[in-house]
């Protein structure tokens, strides 16, 4: 018998995790360190390796190389101990479709060693907490996406694990349900849990996470607090569309010279996107464009999005990755 010291500094300490599916290196040497009692966001586009990373940390998938420790316990050597310390809420609800919410929670509780009576009490408590009491007896087939996610999270909390993995907890939820989910996550951390969540949205990381890792093509390409990440992107970004595609090279050079950062050209070759630290520089740029005889078709300034984080960090857009 061992006991867990939930005050140990690192809830997750992974180094060099690798997972290959055939030719595709889905996770290609990921290092992650998550401090106990914090919310950690793993940010990246579809197919970046977020889910695979979580599945390895949650002992659902064996790593091809590298190692990870959960509260000091090795995922490969002590998987059964790790499972007692974690709760996993998958991207696709990991609950039993053909059973009711109550039946699901009772079965998971029983599997975790609760007595019949304890399991029933626990199920009621959780349904109450997550506002599912009225739907408790209905089969899950008739549940909305948000209800399913809530039940899924409830099922992860039966044993009150100190570390909870949430794989894209709000993808596909309406804004109201999403805010509820955020509140629940914040409450979890306040009560001492550690949360590792993946997301495609910078805003979500912004709202919740203490620290963020940006992941792309199976690698961590940036790590830090949300503020640090944003500073690296510039507070906003500037999009300039050029009327004449032939001038795009000259325009890019000009933009890079005046704003003093690297710019990217869109696939169709007419639009330049560049991080913008100083809004004053825009007027300089416009004057310079006029002077060089380059006509702009459209000009806009946008707040940083995941796209821009990617642009700055990897030198290419995130959307392109999604398509490939």
């Amino acid at each position: 018998m061992k006991t867990v010291d939930t005050n140990s500094e690192w809830a997750v300490d992974a180094s060099g995790l690798v997972k290959t599916f055939g030719e595709n290196r889905a996770v290609d040497g990921v290092n992650l360190r998550v401090k106990a009692g914090t919310i950690y966001g793993v940010l990246g586009p579809n197919g970046a390796g977020k889910t695979t990373t979580i599945r390895m940390l949650a002992t659902l998938l064996k790593a091809d190389a590298g190692s990870a420790r959960i509260f000091g316990y090795d995922i490969a050597k002590d998987p059964q101990i790790v499972r007692q310390l974690i709760g996993v809420t998958g991207q696709y609800a990991s609950v039993d479709e053909s059973l009711s919410a109550t039946e699901n929670l009772i079965i998971f509780s029983r599997l975790l060693g609760l007595s019949r009576k304890e399991a029933r009490v626990k199920a009621e408590e959780l349904l109450e907490e997550f506002g599912l009491t009225e739907a408790a007896k209905r089969p899950l087939k008739h549940f909305s996406g948000g209800m399913r996610r809530r039940l899924d999270l409830a099922a992860s909390l039966i044993a009150r694990p100190p570390l909870i993995f949430l794989d894209e907890p709000t993808t596909g939820l309406d804004p109201r349900t999403r805010n509820q989910m955020w509140d629940t996550i914040r409450k979890l951390v306040k009560s001492g849990s550690t949360v590792l969540l993946t997301t495609q949205y910078l805003q979500e990381a912004d709202e919740l996470a203490d620290r963020v890792a940006v992941i792309d093509r199976g690698r961590v390409v940036a790590e830090g607090t949300v503020d640090e990440l944003k500073q690296s992107v510039g507070s906003s970004s500037l999009h300039v569309s050029i009327q004449n595609a032939d001038q795009i090279g000259a325009a890019k050079e000009l933009v890079e010279r005046i704003l003093n950062v690297q710019a990217a050209v869109s696939a169709e070759g007419r639009k330049i996107t560049v991080p913008l630290a100083d809004a004053d520089a825009v007027s300089d740029l416009l004057l310079a464009l006029r002077k060089e005889g380059i006509q702009s078709a459209e000009l806009s300034i946008q707040k940083p999005t995941l796209d821009e984080v990617f642009l700055t960090i990897t030198g290419k857009g995130a959307k392109k990755e999604v398509e490939s």
Partner: peptide, 19 residues
């Protein structure tokens, strides 16, 4: 309302093998 989530995590006994 948030009674459940307010309870704090307690230290637990861990075993690596299931009996």
């Amino acid at each position: 309302m948030n009674s459940y989530l307010d309870t704090h995590i307690v230290d637990r006994q861990l075993k690596n093998k299931s009996s």
